[in-house]
Simulated assay, not measured.
Amino acid sequence: MTKPTFVYDGDCAFCTSCAQFIERRIPTRARLVPWQFADLDALGLTTGQCEQAVQWVGDRRAAGPDAIALLLKDAGRLWRAAGTALGSAPVRLVAWPVYRWVSEHRHMMPGGTAACSLPQAQRDRMTDTPL
């Protein structure tokens, strides 16, 4: 079995803070990688998919809270219970709207910055503009 990959937005300070928390506290086998530094073609992902939600690429593919559920299930006993709960049908009905809300407001979350709220194309234009 190949090592699963969890892909997140490395330009977003909130997303990066969450990824750092995962690396410190959640014992997953997954490789965490910002999509900006990932080989998206090799992972079978597009920029658009990665701008929309975090991605899990492994034996199964998932996005958003479904990807988070798979990451938690991968992390072992205690975390598996949380991942199973997150992946259950009733919780998923709430998880997706909450995930979308957080995603749309991540610039307002702890560690978030104004750049977190912009699509990648706009972020690229900001860095390409001379001062």
Rank of each mutant, 00 (worst) to 15 (best):
G10P: 00
C12M: 07
C12R: 03
A13E: 01
C15V: 05
T16F: 10
S17H: 11
C18Y: 11
C18W: 12
C18A: 15
A19L: 04
A19G: 08
Q20P: 06
F21E: 07
E23R: 10
R25N: 11
T28C: 02
R29G: 06
A30W: 04
A30N: 09
R31W: 10
R31H: 13
R31P: 09
L32Y: 06
V33Q: 05
V33G: 07
W35Q: 12
F37I: 05
F37L: 06
A38F: 01
A42R: 13
A42S: 14
A42N: 14
A42D: 11
G44V: 07
T46W: 04
T46G: 06
G48F: 06
G48N: 11
Q49K: 04
C50T: 09
E51Q: 04
V54D: 10
V54S: 09
V57S: 08
G58T: 02
R60T: 02
R61Y: 06
R61V: 03
A62L: 02
P65F: 02
D66V: 09
A67E: 01
L70F: 07
L71D: 00
L71N: 00
D74I: 01
L78S: 07
W79N: 00
W79F: 02
R80Q: 12
A82G: 03
A82V: 00
G83C: 02
A85D: 00
S88E: 05
S88W: 04
P90Y: 03
R92C: 06
V94Y: 09
A95D: 15
A95R: 15
V98T: 14
V98Y: 11
Y99Q: 15
R100F: 02
S103A: 15
S103H: 14
E104L: 15
H107Y: 13
H107N: 10
H107L: 04
M108K: 15
M108T: 13
T113H: 10
T113Q: 10
A114P: 14
A114W: 13
A115W: 13
S117C: 14
S117H: 13
P119Q: 11
P119K: 09
A121V: 08
R123S: 07
R123H: 09
R125G: 02
T127K: 08
T129F: 12
L131I: 01
